[in-house]
């Protein structure tokens, strides 16, 4: 989250980039950066801006128990004795398998646009957070059209498939509301509106 905390109107063209930033921040393993953004209010501000810009109802969320947030992240997205409700891989949502044709298509798409997975990223390239970050990079490079493809064709199906599971299984008060919000937001944002 690099935006400054001051609330200001979001230009329609910025909606895609900001939505991608928010997705990236939300679904990355909860780390110091997320904690800082939550503590400083930058995260809440960004959410509010996006809600205002798109007319999607702003989520009610709060993070009071940081360790709980970390545990919930693991139980929702990583490893869970009762089954991971929402594996965070867009290819899995699209194909029902890992590293399937959609993940391959994504890889080729990103390679075509000069985006590579960083050496320090120890997860699949089609992790929701990674796809969103790739979108941010593309948007920053002026390829809003490509960023929008990622959002519409890769991220949105993940939310369609897994948002209900996250909402049902969340006990943190964070991932449920955020996922519901982002899911609605992504279904609202289409590449036409961003253009």
């Amino acid at each position: 989250m690099t935006r400054d905390a001051a609330t200001r109107p979001v230009e329609p063209a910025d909606v895609v980039e900001q939505a991608l930033q928010l997705v990236a921040a939300t679904y990355r393993s909860p780390d110091a950066a997320l904690r800082a953004d939550l503590d400083s209010g930058a995260f809440a501000t960004a959410v509010a801006e996006l809600a205002a810009a798109t007319g999607v109802a702003a989520p009610v969320f709060q993070v009071t128990d940081w360790p709980k947030l970390q545990t919930t992240y693991v139980t929702l997205f990583v490893t869970n004795a009762a089954g991971v409700p929402a594996p965070p891989y867009v290819g899995l949502a699209l194909d029902g398998e890992l590293l399937g044709p959609s993940a391959e298509a994504l890889k080729r798409f990103l390679a075509h646009h000069g985006v590579e997975t960083a050496a320090g990223w120890h997860d699949l390239a089609d992790h929701v957070a990674a796809v969103a970050e790739a979108g941010v990079l593309l948007a920053e490079a002026g390829r809003d059209d490509a960023a929008c493809v990622l959002l519409e064709r890769f991220l949105s199906p993940w939310f369609q498939r897994y948002a209900p599971e996250v909402v049902a299984a969340d006990d943190s008060g964070f991932y449920g509301p955020l996922t519901e919000f982002l899911g609605s937001l992504l279904s609202e944002v289409s590449c036409e509106t961003a253009a």
């Binding site: 044709p101 959609s102 298509a105 080729r108 390679a111 075509h112 493809v149």
Partner: peptide, 14 residues
């Protein structure tokens, strides 16, 4: 070009 050559639709199995 948005999509790589020879692969116009990334959402179907090649």
């Amino acid at each position: 070009q948005l999509f790589p050559d020879g692969f116009p639709n990334p959402f179907r199995a090649p």
